[in-house]
Simulated assay, not measured.
Amino acid sequence: MQLLGRLEIRSKEKIIEFLNHQETGRICSIDKDGFPQIIPMNFAYTNDVIYMHSHPRGEKLENIVKNSKVGFEVDRSLEFLPSYFTSPTDASQADTLYISIVIKGKASLVSDPKEKTLALNELMKKYQPEGGYEKLTPDMKVVEEVAIIKVVPITMRGKYKIGQHWDKKTRLEIAKKILARNSPTAHDTIKTMGIINTKDGLQISEEPSW
């Protein structure tokens, strides 16, 4: 229980910051047979709600109309830690550094053209921040042609494991092994762990905290 508490993201601001920097979320609705249906979606978090755009017909929309209770999940896998980092033979020592957010909420389909326009512009601003497009207005045909799913969170829970549960010596040792393994994410991972690579070797720049 003590470790689980240390893995919890306690800051709502950090949760929102993480959501705004991730490209894909997964919405889970319940189908007509009672099975969960999970769909990856682009999304934007703004004004304390989640917006997604969709084709105007489809199973997930039917699910939401019948049952507004949904789940929404976003995660980022930072680094797989092979078992041999800590044990020469024990496979159970394999681990993963990660950040994840799990939301429970109420979903609805937005009908108001102004709110649909807001959602679409927020999506464009997130995914195409460099611009190069005409800002949408409520009278545009595309606003009428797409569906907008709105999720109002009831609970938002975040977990992270980026080395905060290790002492400084262990964190540096694991960071060295991560760099030696030379995965594509290695350098970004050690930065997230609060470690910098200097000419004098690895040094802790800050405590990893969310």
Rank of each mutant, 00 (worst) to 15 (best):
P82A: 03
S108E: 13
S11Q: 02
S77P: 07
T46D: 13
K126E: 06
V102T: 10
S54T: 05
I101W: 01
Y127F: 13
D33Q: 14
T24I: 15
L120R: 02
F43A: 02
S83Q: 15
D139V: 03
N197H: 15
I196A: 11
I149E: 01
H165L: 07
E17L: 00
K135H: 11
L4A: 15
I50F: 15
Y51H: 03
D90M: 13
P113E: 11
E17R: 00
W166D: 11
L179M: 04
S183V: 08
R26S: 09
I174V: 12
N182Y: 05
P113R: 09
T46V: 15
D33T: 10
A107N: 09
P82C: 01
G58F: 09
L61Y: 02
L78M: 11
T155N: 08
G158W: 01
I64P: 13
P88T: 07
V142R: 09
H53F: 13
M193W: 09
L97P: 03
K12Y: 10
N42I: 01
Y133S: 03
E8F: 00
V143W: 07
M52K: 00
G34V: 09
D112P: 12
L78F: 15
A180D: 10
S29G: 01
C28P: 07
A186Y: 01
N121K: 01
L81G: 03
S29Q: 05
T192E: 15
I154Y: 11
V102P: 01
D200E: 15
F18D: 06
K135G: 04
H165C: 04
Y160E: 08
D75W: 07
P36Q: 08
I30G: 05
I195H: 10
S92M: 14
L123E: 02
I9D: 00
V74G: 01
V102F: 12
R10C: 10
Y98V: 06
L97D: 08
Q37E: 11
T185L: 15
D167N: 14
L4T: 09
A94S: 07
T198A: 08
L120Y: 05
A186V: 09
R171I: 04
S100W: 07
P153W: 00
L179N: 06
A186E: 09
A180V: 04
H21R: 12
I9L: 07
I38G: 05
H187N: 11
D167A: 13
N67M: 12
L109E: 08
W166T: 03
K125G: 05
Q93M: 15
H21S: 07
V49G: 03
N182V: 05
G25A: 03
D90P: 08
V146D: 07
K177G: 00
E8H: 00
S77E: 14
P138L: 02
